[in-house]
């Protein structure tokens, strides 16, 4: 009996154990290694004996205007894209949240855009938006979309097309957890549909809105494949996201020291707001 209680007592740690072991195995070495690289002159040419560089990598990153531009672009892009996707995803989730024949198929088809690898979709968009032979170019009246003036809006639209279903999926699952009784009670009180929406639905799915916003923001902040394939970060550095900046620094310049320094800086800068955000989100959920 005594043993049983202590086992139950330890259970909370035992349940966390698999996760902890996995993180320990996969994260420890790369993290230490990344910190190590960031303080060394770790370029491909002298990868075997890297001289110690102190804070040089960090200083060079912080004084690089391209770095700041990429941070700004990523924040701008992530914010706009996640706002649109949340709005559309929520609207469509509400729209689909009713009895419809063939709903499984409809929802599966709606989730389809998510199922194409962004890297490959980027390649296809090179063709579909090509100003000589592109299907979309033709359908949209022959406008050449991959020019400097339209480039950022086009990237945003592509992201929205591909990832709105993601926001939808989370919000739609969230909608399923709202108890029907709430609406029934509201109906007795004579609530209007908009009152239902703002006083019942939105508060009930608020935690899911937060989760969807957080995930979409983080992922679009890191956007890489699709933009890289489509624009290469150009023209100039106009569409260079932070991931593209780091990727080019690491693999094309071969400067792993500066690339890791840049990503550690980002992690440090964002860990504070992220902690605050997740805390608040949790409190919101618990309340």
């Amino acid at each position: 009996m005594q043993q049983g209680i202590s086992l139950e007592h330890k259970m909370k740690y035992i349940l966390l154990l698999p996760l902890a072991v996995m993180l320990l195995l996969l994260i420890t070495f790369p993290t230490i290694y990344s910190w190590y690289l960031s303080f060394h002159r770790a370029v491909l040419a002298n990868y075997f004996e890297m001289p110690f560089a102190g804070l040089e990598n960090y200083l060079r990153v912080l004084t690089d205007s391209d770095f700041w531009h990429s941070v700004w672009f990523s924040i701008y892009y992530a914010t706009i894209v996640s706002l649109i996707e949340l709005f559309l995803g929520f609207s469509i989730a509400l729209f689909f949240n009713r009895k419809m024949p063939g709903k499984t198929l409809i929802i599966s088809l709606f989730l389809l855009p998510m199922m194409v690898s962004p890297a490959l979709l980027g390649v296809m968009f090179r063709l579909l938006l090509n100003d000589s032979v592109g299907l979309f170019t033709y359908l949209l009246g022959g406008v050449s979309f991959l020019t400097s003036e339209y480039l950022i809006p086009v990237l945003i639209v592509i992201d929205v097309l591909q990832w709105t279903p993601f926001a939808f999926l989370i919000l739609y699952s969230g909608l399923q957890t709202v108890p029907v009784e709430l609406y029934e009670a509201a109906a007795i009180d004579g609530a209007s549909p908009s009152q239902n929406l703002f006083y019942i639905t939105v508060p009930a799915v608020a935690p899911f809105l937060v989760i969807a916003a957080l995930l979409r923001w983080l992922d679009s902040f890191k956007v890489f494949d699709m933009v890289f394939v489509l624009t290469g970060g150009g023209p100039g550095i106009m569409t260079t996201s932070l991931s593209i900046y780091i990727y080019k620094m690491a693999f094309q310049t071969g400067d792993f020291g500066r690339a890791t320094a840049a990503s550690i800086l980002v992690l440090l800068a964002f860990s504070m707001p992220l902690v605050a955000f997740v805390r608040r989100a949790r409190r919101g959920i618990n309340a």
Binding site: L19, S34, K222, Y247, A250, S263, S271, V278
Partner: peptide
């Protein structure tokens, strides 16, 4: 633990490729 795991999502995968 939750915050730690979620912040993993912020890491650009690129950075980890060489160490991994």
């Amino acid at each position: 633990p939750l915050i730690f795991v979620v912040s993993l999502r912020l890491l650009p995968v690129v950075v980890f490729t060489v160490p991994i």
